[in-house]
Design a protein around this nucleic acid. Structure first.
Lengths: 152, 152
DNA sequence: CGTTTCGGTTTCAACTTGAAACCATTGCCG
DNA sequence: CGGCAATGGTTTCAAGTTGAAACCGAAACG
């Protein structure tokens, strides 16, 4: 599953996540898992992906600790795939990606869906990035600092 | 550049973004662009990617309206690659991915970097998802609704 | 001018992807 | 119990993608 052998990007904390979910299907599988899908067949039908590819991706996601298999419900023979806590951590990535998609990829006249609060059915707010002191930050207002590099 | 020919995922507003940036290199290029890189050679050196691949990815990102070329500074012959507004919209995706990476992929003893407010040098806050009324939402507290589907 | 750097393109082998066929269980039905 | 379909994969093989290296032309450099 590890397809990359040597990539030392300056910033491994983007590169390593991408290694786990940076292919076409993995994030879509995670998205479906958030939507409650658990079975091989459900993913396969929803995504229309070839079974061998789905199989490989599920194995990869499990290897990365994003999904885990649990025994089927009522002692059924087939196991199910569910998100781990690490996998659920991808919620924010999906929200960000989706809001970007809503903004720049939705085409007029197209039946499109958007994220709503499950409780009220109302749209959720846009993501914001805040400084420690609460100030709103925009693209370009951040940089990377190293381990003890608060000072600049 | 469009490598996928037919994918009708139920949720195209995740799938279409992934078509634009869902490969290994594109997001890393965008990340470097946020860091101020503009030249072919800068990206190439930073990422260690093969030149043909970088060339293809840059063309793809331009085709998707994420990067654009601008004439070199002082009338230099070589143009530069800069983020468009759409490209800058990926800020939130990168922050989300990075925070996920910081949480689940950083290894102890490893010199790691994290995002700070450029102005104060202090770490930024974690992303949060909020309902319209301000309530904090967690993974599983949202669902997708269609166009006029506020009601439920 | 001659050389080096920059910004690519071309070439070709290795790897990945995907459609389809295949297979082993399991569940169902009479 | 005996057959049959559905589920959850694996195998196979052609086609497409990737990546290292060689190549190339234009610009900068000395």
């Amino acid at each position: 599953m590890v397809k990359r052998t040597s990539h030392q990007s300056a910033d491994c904390l983007i590169a390593r996540p991408l290694d786990a979910i940076g292919d076409w299907w993995s994030l879509l599988i995670v998205r479906d898992a958030f939507d409650g899908m658990r079975r091989f067949g459900e993913f396969q039908k929803s995504l229309g992906v070839a079974k061998n590819i789905l199989s490989a991706r599920l194995r990869g996601l499990i290897a990365h600790g994003i999904l885990e298999t649990v025994p089927g419900p009522d002692g059924s023979a087939h196991h199910e795939y569910v998100l781990t806590e690490k996998g659920r951590g991808l919620f924010y990535v999906l929200v960000a990606l989706r809001q970007w998609g809503e903004t720049y990829f939705s085409r007029p006249g197209e039946p499109y869906t958007f994220m709503v609060d499950r409780e009220t059915g109302r749209p959720i707010r846009r993501l914001e990035v805040h400084a420690e002191d609460g100030r709103l930050l925009f693209p370009g207002d951040t940089r990377l600092a190293d381990f003890r590099g608060q000072q600049g």
